[in-house]
Design a protein around this nucleic acid. Structure first.
Lengths: 352, 352
DNA sequence: ATGAAAGCGCTAACAT
DNA sequence: ATGTTAGCGCTTTCAT
């Protein structure tokens, strides 16, 4: 050692259980047991150990423990984006239950890109997370990366956006029912030519919402022309643009059921600019119950997806699968909640 | 071994570099070098190794590597809540830069509780994260847990909500300037008795917004009575309730500058219900540029905090501090952006 | 270019 | 109640 060094033995390296053991003339195993409140340590010894650990500012090393135990006490969560009310609601729910069970949560945003999704699955597998909770990206139409995770035997649970072809546990809401109810409500309120903004058909949620829409229309004998179903990427801008194109093509519906609140908002704003009265001349309903929907004018009819509960259930599903070897996949379906607001109250005198 | 077992040697244990080494009659060190593209491996050997790794579905174990290297390639992020547009924006920014630099992100929500904040700091230290990015909870008035992290020498960077007394790197927006500008704008638009919804004074952001408010009022010679500054918890409900109490006490201001968009919205809705015209009879401005602010009627004047940029800068600050021993704390101050919308346009004929 | 050896910090099986 | 031993999977000297 060169001269001029500081703190000869108190180098700034973190304290380990070995250090503690040396000081107390005992062994690492005893320290380990004491600190984790395992039995097999005398109460006097236990107290001395805990006191010393505190005094020396001992910091357990979860990485080392993880390596040894073969688990990390960490859950990986994959979502398209964190800044959607729905997803951040789910995350909040996941985090709550995880916290209650001493799990950490690693959050990954795919930005709706399959490539990022792939890389994140790799990262999570490398990190040896104890489970993966995922909602797939808009682009995801191939599931090899998830199948790989399954093959490794790590619990994998999907929520909301779910790969159709995989046999895994899942939790979703009844999108079909939610859509059916919205549209039924609109029809009963006097709307007839109701168009639909849809997402990609290979995503269960959008397919089901579209089916619900179609079923309701059919039940009431209302025709659905091809042009009445518009596929777009469901953003605010897309909603506005789609609406514009419809009018430009002289297609004038009297209502819209959008698979997304954002696209609904875009259309709503556009129609208002064009001078249409909402809900009098044009009714609008969305899906997801984004926070803004209740604050806009008029407040937007939408469907609540119980995001927080979904997150909680999802994590509970994981906890159940965690230990159990080969529990058959479970499926939970939550009931959506129709939130009737002013934007679809064509006939209600109170609103007009 | 009992009979009836399956796959005698191909047990379902994950493949390790040792396994690969045995198969290729070489050693773990060579495998490790090859897989990580370190020099010192013949190109033919390297190819054979990579091919085998792929074929055997080898999954690197980041936990083991982390233990060995003493780092985890993970950043811990602590926020009050993920489902605020501001925080989820910051998270999005953090995640972007982290991803570009092969870092994972662990997200922790304190729910604005100091106790959770403490526990999460512990968790992150145990997990041996390479850095902590944090925005403190509403309750946090003691910083021992963060000081502990600092003492361990792990990079700690605060954003937005910052402990006053600590000498650490930080990134914030100029809340004072933002508030000053809003209030100045309101005064210039003819509002006189402008009240303020404030958060706790020990949080820099709220203190600064209040100071900005006071400075603007003073500059224009407008008196600020004690009753004109209302401390509440800045939720929608609190905003509504505070407004109600003011009116109940016959205090009738002609405008509100709220330190939070949510509280501003609560007050706005309440005043509308009471029949006040906004912005004609009552002006309202908020702070944070939550998404809903531009969709409500009337759209809410507010201040944008450049959340995404803040997240990006914050992570870049971490990257800078990561290796460098004892770089002096840096401080970045972003400029807020005043978003003038209809809710404060008292005198603008276009709006009334 | 490759191999041998050591060890990161912890836990758990097996003694005593 | 405590100690001994072994090893999780990897990276990194240090040899050769």
């Amino acid at each position: 050692m060169a001269p001029g060094k500081k703190r000869p033995d108190n180098m700034n390296k973190p304290v380990t259980i070995k250090d503690l053991a040396a000081i107390l003339h005992t062994t690492p195993s005893t320290i380990s047991r004491a600190l984790r409140d395992k039995e097999g340590v005398g109460s006097e010894m236990r107290n001395r150990i805990k006191a010393l650990a505190k005094k020396m500012d001992y910091q357990p090393n979860a990485v080392a423990a993880g390596l040894r135990k073969g688990k990390s006490d960490t859950i990986g969560v994959i979502v398209p984006r964190v800044n959607r009310d729905f997803f951040s609601g789910v995350i909040a729910g996941i985090e709550e239950v995880a916290y209650e069970n001493q799990y950490s949560v690693i959050i990954c945003q795919t930005h709706d890109q399959i490539e990022r999704e792939r890389e994140y699955v790799e990262t999570l597998l490398s990190a040896r997370v104890d489970g993966i909770l995922a909602s797939i990206s808009l682009e995801t139409n191939n599931y090899d990366h998830f199948k790989k995770a399954m093959k490794k035997g790590i619990p994998l649970i999907f929520f909301d956006r779910i790969p159709g072809e995989m046999k895994v546990s899942r939790i979703e809401i009844d999108d079909y029912k939610g859509a059916f109810r919205v549209v039924q409500h609109m029809i009963e309120n006097g709307y007839r030519k109701i168009i639909h903004f849809a997402g990609p058909d290979y995503l269960n949620v959008y397919r089901n919402r579209k089916e619900g829409y179609l079923a309701a229309m059919q039940k009431y004998g209302l025709p659905v022309e091809k042009e009445m179903i518009i596929y777009n990427n469901l953003t605010l801008e897309a909603g506005r643009e789609s609406m514009k194109q419809l009018l430009d093509n002289d297609i004038v519906p009297d209502a819209l059921f959008s698979a997304s609140d954002y696209a609904a908002l875009g259309a709503l704003l556009f129609m208002q600019e064009k001078g249409y009265h909402i809900p009098g001349e044009f009714g609008v309903a969305g899906f997801s119950n984004e926070k803004f929907t209740s604050y806009i004018t008029p407040p937007l009819t939408t469907v609540d997806q119980h995001s927080r509960e979904m997150g909680r259930y999802c994590t509970e599903l994981f906890l159940k699968e965690r230990s159990g070897d080969k529990i058959p996949p479970e499926k939970i379906v939550l009931s959506p909640e129709l939130l009737i607001r002013q934007s679809t109250q064509k006939t209600d005198k109170n609103f007009n």
